[in-house]
Simulated assay, not measured.
Amino acid sequence: MKKNYGKKGPFKGQQTSHANEGEVRAKKHLGQHFLKDENVASKIAETLSYSGYEHVLEIGPGMGVLTKYLLKKETDVHVIEIDTESVAYLQEHYPPLRGKIHEKDFLKYDTREVFGKDQFAIIGNFPYNISSQIVFKMLELRDQIPEFSGMFQKEVAQRICEKEGSKTYGILSVLVQAFYEAKYLFTVPPSVFNPPPKVDSGVLRLTRKEDFSLPCDEKLFFKVVKTAFQQRRKTLRNSLKTFDLPQDIKEDSIFGLRPEQLSTARFIELTQKIEPHAV
C-alpha cells in the first residue's frame, strides 16, 4: 500500500529510500510512502461493510499491508497497481491474488473488463497527486460503486466531507454528497509511513444513497457546480454569466448567493431553475 506525492514520473539523479531485503523500495522519484502500521491497515479494512456486493477493488496496494486484511474478508479482492516492482512483490507474496493483480492505471482502466456490470467497492491508500481524479472517476462509475473508502491527504478528505458555509466546501463536496453520504473517520499521522510524508492523512467512507438519482439533468448539475466554484467569491448571478440566462430568472434570490452558501439540495434546486433555459 503506497502513497504518491509531488511530481509524476522518474527524474535522473533522484534516490530511493532504503528497504529491507525482499521488500519494495519506496522510490523518491515517484514520491512513494508505504504504510507500515498494521493497526491502521486493519482499521482501514474495517471501513467497508462488505454487504450488497461481491467484489472489492484496492487501488495502489504496494506491498499489500492493507491487502492482507482484505483477503481475510468473505469478498472477491482485486488490486490495481501501476508500479512494476510492487506487482512482482504481490505476485510472489500473495498467491490468492493470482489473476487478480491488474498492472494498470486506474484512471485509464475500464473496470468492466473485470467486473462487467457487477457492483463493487473501492478502497485504498490513494496517491495524493491523483486522489481528486480518482474520486471524479468513481462518480462516473457510481451506478456500480455502493461503497468507497480510503486514505487521502487530510485536507482533501475533510473537503470531500465538508458542508456548506465553509471556505473548504467546494466542487468535490457538492458532487460527492449529491450521490453519497460522506463521513470523515480518522486522522493518520506521518509516522506510520516509510518514509514519513510532511502532512497528516485522513480516512473517509462514502456510502451511496439509497436513491442516488437526481431530480434534474445530471450533466447540467455537474456543469453548474463546476462553473459556480470557478469564481467562488462572486455571486451566482455573476459566476454563471456564461449560461446567458434571462434577466427575470437571475432576479431570484438564490442568484444573490455565493456557491459556498448552497447545500447540495440547493444546487439541485438551482439546476432545476436553469434547466428550462439551458442550451
Rank of each mutant, 00 (worst) to 15 (best):
Q272H: 05
P96L: 10
S86K: 06
K8N: 10
E38F: 05
G31E: 14
Q32N: 03
V174P: 00
I101Q: 01
E113F: 05
V203A: 12
G62D: 15
I44L: 00
S263C: 03
F212T: 13
H29V: 02
G99V: 13
Q32T: 02
D244Y: 00
H55S: 11
G256Q: 10
L214I: 13
A178I: 06
G9D: 13
D118Q: 10
L139H: 09
I145S: 05
P190Y: 02
K250I: 15
R208A: 15
S131G: 07
F221P: 04
I268W: 03
K108V: 12
Y50V: 01
R233F: 06
G165Q: 10
G150R: 00
A19V: 07
E210Q: 11
E23D: 14
E58C: 12
D211R: 07
P61S: 08
D211L: 02
F229I: 11
D83N: 14
F34E: 08
K73M: 06
L204H: 02
K7F: 08
Q230R: 09
S253P: 06
T242R: 09
G116R: 04
L236F: 10
V279K: 14
S253Q: 03
Y89F: 15
R233L: 04
E21S: 09
S132Y: 10
L214G: 12
S239T: 12
L71G: 12
H18A: 09
G124C: 06
A88H: 04
D252T: 07
G170E: 00
Q14P: 00
F267D: 03
D244I: 00
M138V: 14
E147I: 11
A265Q: 06
N194E: 14
R159D: 04
P10I: 09
F255H: 01
D244L: 00
Y53I: 08
E218S: 10
I101T: 04
G165T: 11
F148T: 01
Q32E: 02
P259F: 11
T227Q: 14
L236H: 10
T235M: 08
L257R: 15
F11H: 10
Q158A: 13
E103F: 07
G116E: 08
P10H: 14
P127T: 03
Y89K: 01
C216R: 11
N20G: 11
L185V: 06
A182F: 05
Q91L: 04
G116F: 08
E103M: 09
K219Q: 11
E113Y: 07
Q272A: 07
T111V: 13
F212E: 13
L172W: 08
L220Q: 05
